[in-house]
Amino acid sequence: MSVSTPTAWAPEVFAPWPHTPGALLARVAARSTAFDATGAGGGASVLIGSAAGTTAADVGRRARGELMERMGNVFAGRAAEAEAEAAAGAGGARPPAAGVGGVRTCDWFALRRDGVPAADPADPATGPVDGANRGVPARGVRQLWCRGRAAGSCEDIWVPAGAAFLQHRPPPGCAATHRAGSTGVAAHRDPDAAAAHAAWEILERDLVRRSWYDPLRHPPVPFDARGALPPGASELRALLHREGLEATALALPAPTGAEAVAVCVHGPDRTRQTFGARCGPAHDLQETVERACWEALMVRWSMSAPVAVRAWDRLSRTGDPRTGLDHALWTFHAQDALTHWAGPATALRAPPAPASRPARDPGPVALLAAHTGREVIVVDRCAGPPADEGLTVVRLIAPGASPLPARPVPGQLPHPFG
């Protein structure tokens, strides 16, 4: 059932579950030759924003915001790449100097010689490496750099463009040491609000990753999510009941002041699992569980989308998840990730007691820096339609925190997140 018609980046808001018309999804997508193919788009050059919940205005705003943050970051990368190419085309044997324009093509040693502070591309903590250059001595790679700033000290620090921009395309004569995903990108009219949103997202993925890949060291605490929802979450409770679904939440070890929850939605026999996650302030457990639950339901609904059906046809033969969609499909069709991660249903416990509101709230960016013990880097660059709207799009880079990988991790089951 369609509730709105898409125009000018307006999302389509629809009610996919006829028995629960108050449960809504929103989706909006853009196509451009500036975008690379993605799994969720079935290999098309599209970026997609989506959200789930019960209020049309809220899910629409969040879906549109997700598209804008991704689009703004990709176009910022394209602008930086074009700036570097223009400088090279103008006889730029001398690349743009640090401090002018905010981009530069060189290797890490050249920045060091010029006294320009830069993230070390050889440091594994700097971010996900570009698979095409795995094993190459990273400091000597000629690549595009862009200027960021340390969130705490506000001092300039230059970062590889591949760590800053989603789907970075190296300029001629350059390679890339890093290849960033969407984790850590956020859009808002207020730059501080954008940075806060990005910091919670990075922290969430890092806490999920740590617990999934080493549950003995970072043990999850499983509990029934339905008993920990806000009193007003009647549509969500009704949807789970009418679909015959259970929802198991996992409280993940988190730094003081934060709360991280993964939710698995599944059948009574623990088949057909999909996962969502959420990280937020430690005193908001009910809302954290609710948001993670909606995310898991959105992914579950997507398991029957045409691109997912085609992807499963391939994946069921290869058994080799390679994209976010693949990971969700593998979990839904072929893996009891919940029991692997948190033990059998008999391991369920009571929901954690709500934490008290801290006397002093350092905010998520400082909390993330304390979690990693490293300065968080902010790259504040936006281009394309989001810039035309006056949005700020930031990329946060948190050395020491890592997103969930799509490629296999040797000796480990594929993680269950799409």
Binding site: P6, A29, A82, E83, G324, P385, L404
Partner: peptide, 25 residues
Amino acid sequence: MEQPEIEQVTEELPEFGLIDIPSED
């Protein structure tokens, strides 16, 4: 920079899956 053509997807939207774009995706 000349901005690449960009369009909103409408007809194919129901084809797509709906959390993350991983670094390798």
